[in-house]
C-alpha cells in the first residue's frame, strides 16, 4: 500500500472514532433551541441545564448506584469464580468458562427480555432489584476475564510458599493473591463500571415508570424534548468515561489488563 492510502485509511478511522464525539460536544454548545449540527451560535446554557433536569438527577443516581454496586457484586462473585477456574482442574471448567462469557456474546436485548419474562414478572421483583441483578450479570464476564488474566500471571507456588510459612488457604489468598491482582481487580472495576453505566438494551426492558437508568432516561427525554441538553449530557458522560480510563491508565497501566 502506498503511504497515501495508509494516511487516508488512518484519517477515516480517526474521523469515525472521534467525529461523533466532537459533533456531540459542539451540538451541546448551541445557543439555539433545537438539537442541530452545526450549532446555531455558541453558549454553555445547555450544559448548565443538564444539572437542573430532575429526572436526570434521579436516573444519574440510579446509574451510579448500579455501576458501582453492580460491579462490586460482580467482582465478589467473579474473583472467587476466576480463582477456582484458574487454580483447580474442575470437571467442566471449559463449559463454565463458555457460560461465563455468554453475556458478552448474547445480545443484551435477549438477556433483558429473558430476565423480564422469567425473572422479573414471575418473581415480582422490584425494578431496582431487577436492574441490579441484570447489571451484575452483564458485568460478571468482564470481571471473570480480567481477573483471570491477572491470575494467570501469578504463579501458584507463591501461595504454596505462604501455606508452608503457616497460612491457611484463605490467608494465602488474602495475603498473597489479592495484593498481587489488585491492578487487575481495579481494571475489572473500571471496565465493569463503564459497561454498566453505558448499558442500554437490557435496561430498556427493565426500566419502569420513575425508575430509569440515565441512558434510558435520555432516550425518553429526547422523545418529548428535542433540545441540545441531551447532547450536552452525552458529552459530559463521555468526558467522565475518558477521565476514569485516563486516570486508571496513569495509575496502573489499565490497558495491560483489557
Amino acid at each position: 500500500m502506498s503511504r497515501l492510502t495508509i494516511w487516508i485509511i488512518l484519517g477515516a478511522t480517526l474521523t469515525f472514532l472521534i467525529g461523533p464525539f466532537l459533533i456531540v460536544i459542539f451540538a451541546g454548545m448551541s445557543a439555539g433551541e433545537a438539537l442541530a449540527f452545526p450549532p446555531q451560535g455558541l453558549s454553555l446554557k445547555w450544559y448548565a441545564k443538564v444539572f437542573t433536569v430532575e429526572s436526570f438527577q434521579a436516573s444519574f443516581a440510579l446509574s451510579m448506584f448500579l455501576a458501582v454496586f453492580g460491579t462490586i457484586a460482580a467482582l465478589l462473585i467473579g474473583i472467587p469464580a476466576a480463582y477456582a477456574l484458574n487454580r483447580y482442574d474442575l470437571p467442566g471448567s471449559e463449559t463454565i468458562r463458555t457460560i461465563v462469557a455468554a453475556p458478552i456474546i448474547v445480545p443484551g436485548i435477549i438477556v433483558g427480555l429473558a430476565l423480564l419474562r422469567y425473572f422479573v414478572v414471575p418473581l415480582n421483583v422490584t425494578i431496582t432489584m431487577a436492574l441490579f441483578v441484570t447489571h451484575t450479570a452483564l458485568v460478571l464476564p468482564y470481571a471473570v476475564r480480567v481477573v483471570s488474566s491477572s491470575l494467570n500471571n501469578l504463579r501458584a507456588d507463591m501461595e504454596e510458599a505462604a501455606v508452608i510459612l503457616g497460612c491457611t488457604r484463605l490467608q494465602a489468598f488474602t495475603k498473597v493473591v489479592l495484593p498481587n491482582i489488585r491492578g487487575g481487580i481495579l481494571a475489572a472495576f473500571i471496565l465493569g463500571f463503564v459497561t454498566s453505566f453505558n448499558e442500554v438494551p437490557a435496561s430498556l426492558f427493565l426500566s419502569g415508570p420513575g425508575v430509569r437508568t440515565l441512558p434510558i432516561d435520555m432516550l425518553s427525554y429526547m422523545e418529548i424534548t428535542f433540545d441540545p441538553s441531551v447532547a450536552a449530557l452525552s458529552a459530559l458522560l463521555a468526558f467522565m468515561s475518558v477521565a476514569i480510563v485516563f486516570i486508571a491508565e496513569r495509575l496502573l497501566g489499565f490497558s495491560r489488563y483489557v
Binding site: 504463579r155 507456588d157 507463591m158 504454596e160 510458599a161 505462604a162 508452608i164 498473597v176 498481587n180
Partner: peptide, 10 residues
C-alpha cells in the same frame, strides 16, 4: 521449603 522458582512475594 525453598522453591526452585523462589516463590518470593513480589
Amino acid at each position: 521449603l525453598v522453591f526452585q522458582s523462589y516463590a518470593l512475594f513480589p
